[in-house]
């Protein structure tokens, strides 16, 4: 889609806001609708949009495929690690009460960290799936449809 000027300009304008919105959804999930799953999908969708408009190779310059091998397990490890941390601090697995001075503070901290882990894994998986499909085919040309 290299010569669609409107698509290129509009997506270039939109992508930073999509990324920012994903971060808002991620960290505001305690108060309004949102959380790690939605934020991960939106964050991944921004890169998918970028790759659709500018081509997969340009997108892989911005987000190298080798990062995925770190990001995808990292999120799950953050989630599981939170559980281990609460074990080490004397609680049961994934019992956030012990993570901070007060149980409420611990719950807040635990929920933020765990949601962050979910967001990281979902982002990584969405981008990995898209790169896997897109890497198989040449860039989609207009006359393909």
């Amino acid at each position: 889609m290299r010569h669609h000027l409107i698509l290129r300009v509009v997506s270039k304008l939109l992508i930073p806001f999509i990324l920012l919105y994903a971060l808002y959804v991620q960290f505001h999930g305690d108060y309004g609708p949102g959380g790690g799953f939605q934020a991960g999908v939106i964050f991944g969708a921004a890169f998918v949009l970028y790759a659709l408009i500018y081509g997969v190779e340009t997108a892989q310059k911005a987000f190298p495929a080798s990062w995925l091998a770190i990001l995808v397990p990292l999120g799950l490890l953050i989630f599981g690690g939170t559980g281990v941390a609460s074990l080490l601090l004397g609680g049961t697995y994934l019992d956030y009460d012990v993570l901070a001075a007060t149980p409420t503070g611990g719950q807040h901290l635990g929920i933020i960290v765990v949601e962050f882990g979910v967001g990281v894994t979902v982002t990584g998986v969405i981008i990995a799936i898209f790169f896997a499909y897109a890497g198989r085919t040449d860039d989609i040309q207009d006359d393909d449809w």
Partner: peptide
């Protein structure tokens, strides 16, 4: 927990094991 979004508090805290499993499935 004092988290206004009840869905988030169930997802991450009360049902943390569920969510851990779901994340593992996505992974």
């Amino acid at each position: 927990i004092q988290v206004p979004n009840i869905v988030t508090s169930i997802l991450a805290s009360y049902r943390g094991f569920d969510t851990l499993g779901e994340t593992a499935v996505i992974f």
